[in-house]
Every structure is written in structure tokens, then in C-alpha cells.
Design a protein around this nucleic acid. Structure first.
Lengths: 144, 144
DNA sequence: CTGTCTGCAAATGGTTTGCACCATA
DNA sequence: TATGGTGCAAACCATTTGCAGACAG
């Protein structure tokens, strides 16, 4: 049980959370910064980072660390999975898993006491798929 | 089919690959750099990065991007999964999946044409687990 | 009042890149 | 000898942090 210092409620923290929960695009810190800046023009990027970290620690939001070099954030914390487009970097939610899924989380794997698991899909999104091959909207993100 | 320029064989590239395939610790670029430096003292970190990138692109090695801020590399490319220790950052291979696994890769998910999937486990490794709680060998890495 | 939070700016640190020289095919 | 690769150092850029003033409780 990690020590957690008591925290205050600030308009910055509240609005960062509101804006994140309002979108379904899994924004990066900078993208969210731009959204929040509409409502709090003087907010700083550092504050956004600090609060996202804090909200993620307390489990109010989730970090998606596996989708390129910028961390993305997800305001929806009920269990679901993600699909990443290898071409344009888009991220979508997967609530309905294909048959064979979902998965139980095992208690132990290789001696590790398991706390969680992550399942992610990689592929080509419908938009990229409908374009001629080798023509990319954006440079491809890392695959695995 | 992405264009790939023809590449030469250099001692640097060969030895980077050899050293990576020799260890099972999923080293970071810097860790691998230290290993390679024993054999090629004058090699530069930039060369290590450039070659790891290249080897990953051609599928000879794999990038593990979801385990903290430093990218780790895996010289074993046959399909297997990973367990990450949330406390010390250790990464282990999982070749024997618990029942229910492994999973078929679906052809389509949410309209995406699926190229691959990634399943990862997070938990506490045996070493960390045997220590009193809240005493960490190293600062915790990000969880999810 | 006390201690947390913010804005600002500077620092960090992993990764990438420009360049001139080197070496493979 | 043409061109890809290397070492070196500087650049990049997402993220973190130190600090002084602001503000919540």
C-alpha cells in the first residue's frame, strides 16, 4: 500500500479530467493541453503532465504506453482493449472481443504474481486500408 | 512492400546481433552498447541504435516498447509473450501460456485488418515478491 | 496558516541526425 | 569507386523538475 499524500481539488485537475473523459481519441499530453487551454488559457504543459500522472496513479485514468513515442491517455477505465493502426497511428477501443476472448487473468505466470494483463491488436485501419498500398497518411509508428 | 535499400554486412551489425541473441535479459540499447563495447571498444551508441532499428525493421529482432521509458530489444523472434515486473522492471519470456491461451489472431477487429496482437502480463517478480512490501529494489516502472 | 499546486523555465535523458571519413561489394 | 556504414557530437523532443508565488482546506 503505497503512501499517497492527500490532494486538493483544483480547477486545473478537474478540467483536465473532464476534457479527457469527453473525447474518445486517446490524446497525448500535448493534445490534451491544447484542449484544456481553450478553457484555461494560462495553464502550463507541466501542470497537464503532473495531473495526468497523478490521475493515472490513482486509477482514474489510464496510460497507453505502447503506441508510439508519445504516451497516450484514456479516460475510460472499465476493462477494454485497443487496436493500433500501424500506418497512421490511430487508436480505437475494442469492447467486443472476437470469439476465444476474453481472457481470465491468471494468478501466477513464470513465478510472477500477476496484477494485470494487456492485450493489444495491431493492423491497418479502414481509412488506411482503402488507400493504395505504400501511400501513407503519416509515417508509420513502431510496430512491436 | 516497403522499399528497402540493400545493406552491407559490417562487423558492428553482426556483433550487435550476436550479443543480443546471446542474452535473455531483453536489454536496452545502452545495456547492449556496453556488451558490444567489450568486443568493439570504439563503437558508438548511435551505431547501436541505428542497427537495432534496422534489424527490427527487417524482423530479425523485436522491439519491446511497453516496458518503461527505455525501449528493450529481444533477439528471439518466434512467438512468445512477456511478463513485466512492476517493481524492478525485469522482463521475462513466457513460452508456456496458462490455459485459455494462446489465442488465434483474428482477421478483423473493429474494421481494422489485423496484422498482429500482443499479450503482456504485469506483476511482481519472485525476487520482489519475497521482499517486505514497499521496499523496492528500484523505483517502479510505469504500469499501464 | 500550512502544505499543496501552479506557471514558468531550465534541465533531463533516451533517441535521432548531420557530417566527414571509412570500408564493403 | 560508388554508396552504405561508422564515430562523433550536436540536435531533438517528450517528459520531469526546481522554484517562487498562489491558493485550497
Amino acid at each position: 500500500m503505497p503512501y499517497r499524500k492527500r490532494q486538493r481539488s483544483t480547477p486545473q485537475r478537474r478540467i483536465i479530467l473532464e476534457e479527457l473523459q469527453k473525447v474518445r481519441s486517446h490524446p497525448t499530453a500535448s493534445e490534451l493541453y491544447e484542449l484544456v487551454r481553450i478553457r484555461i488559457p494560462k495553464i502550463s504543459l507541466g501542470t497537464v503532465y503532473r495531473n495526468l500522472e497523478l490521475l493515472a496513479e490513482q486509477g482514474t485514468i489510464k496510460k497507453l504506453s505502447a503506441c508510439g513515442k508519445e504516451t497516450r491517455f484514456d479516460g475510460v477505465v472499465n476493462p477494454h482493449y485497443h487496436v493500433f493502426c500501424c500506418q497512421c497511428g490511430r487508436v480505437d477501443d475494442v469492447f467486443d472481443l472476437p470469439k476465444g476472448f476474453p481472457l481470465e487473468t491468471p494468478e501466477y505466470v513464470c513465478g510472477y504474481r500477476i496484477l494485470g494483463q494487456r492485450l493489444e491488436f495491431f493492423g491497418i485501419c479502414p481509412k488506411c486500408n482503402s488507400c493504395p498500398r505504400d501511400i501513407q497518411h503519416e509515417p508509420p509508428k513502431e510496430k512491436e
